[in-house]
């Protein structure tokens, strides 16, 4: 993957939204956004109800993912173009998710819903009907998903990137102010993690910064390309945004997203936690 294949512009989407084999998918935190207007032909995925298991804290499994995409009318050979609100946080989460289950052709609309709205491009209320398919997912590609034990082992060894805001990193806040739920037991960050807030990778209009700017951003943060990398945030959606930047736009190898993130790590017994603005010692 590279910037050319992973990212498409709003102009590209307008040109191709009616193409057979192109499926637009809106993924939002505020799942009512789609109902108030969406890009013509786009279907909706609910990041929580559709993509997460209703009982266990985990993703839907392979069979559930296959059933979901079959029912929504997505085929294995479709080009899936994802977009959403919150500067594409949840669209990036879904992108990572499609990659996790082996979908070949996935793209993100640069700037997401915000850029589309700021450009005054057309939104419609009509909900498309798509014939059901028989979707086959691959086994989860765990080369892009980090679990808690490997995160603990990565302290002082791998690049750990905490993409939350500086106040969450330091332990002064447990969550963004508008999301008081799902709090961890303790505040702080994983020792030796660098803090590169996701927002530094995006422009005001939600589009990604240029590769040159992004290279400089992570170089300044001390990202060592000779090491493997794990990104995390609070619940794994903002870190999907950074995972996309590193793995897909900058083509850094061996980048994983830790979807358990701080809500898991900050509740574990016995693991080290660092407080304050500095990465801390291993």
């Amino acid at each position: 993957m590279s910037r050319d294949t992973a990212l498409v512009t709003a102009d590209w989407v307008e040109e191709h939204l009616s193409d057979a084999g192109v499926v637009l998918v809106e993924v939002d935190e505020d799942t009512t956004a789609y109902d108030k207007g969406h890009i013509a032909g786009a279907i909706k995925l609910d990041w929580k109800n559709d993509l997460q298991d209703p009982v266990r804290r985990d993703f839907v499994n392979k069979a559930q993912f296959e059933a979901l995409l079959s029912e929504r009318g997505v085929s294995n050979d479709d080009t899936v173009v994802l977009y959403g609100g919150n500067n594409n946080w949840f669209a990036a989460y879904a992108y990572w998710y499609f990659k996790l289950y082996g979908h070949t052709d996935v793209k993100l609309l640069d700037g997401g819903r915000k850029k589309w709205e700021l450009d005054s491009r057309e939104l419609v209320e009509e909900i498309p009907t798509r014939a059901t398919t028989s979707y086959t997912a691959s086994e989860q590609d765990t080369s892009i998903r980090a679990f808690r034990d490997e995160v603990v082992e990565a302290i002082g060894v791998q690049n750990l990137i905490d993409v939350r805001s500086p106040d969450e990193f330091a332990g002064r806040l447990l969550a963004p102010a508008h999301l008081p739920q799902e709090q961890a037991q303790r505040g702080g960050h994983i020792p030796t993690a660098g803090n590169v807030p996701w927002s530094k990778a995006a422009n005001d209009d939600g589009t990604f910064r240029s590769n040159e700017e992004l290279e400089a951003l992570y170089a300044e943060a001390g990202l060592d390309r000779s090491k493997d990398t794990i990104a995390y945030c609070r619940i794994g959606e903002r870190s999907s945004h950074t995972w996309f930047v590193l793995a897909e736009l900058l083509e850094v190898s061996n980048v994983k997203n830790y979807d358990g993130s701080w809500t898991e790590y900050g509740s574990l017994i016995g693991v080290p936690v660092a407080l304050g603005d500095e990465p801390g010692e291993a």
Binding site: G85, N86, N87, K114, S165, P166, P176, H178, P197, K200
Partner: peptide, 8 residues
């Protein structure tokens, strides 16, 4: 000047 939050 650092981004903190955004709302529609």
């Amino acid at each position: 000047g650092e981004f903190t939050a955004e709302v529609p």
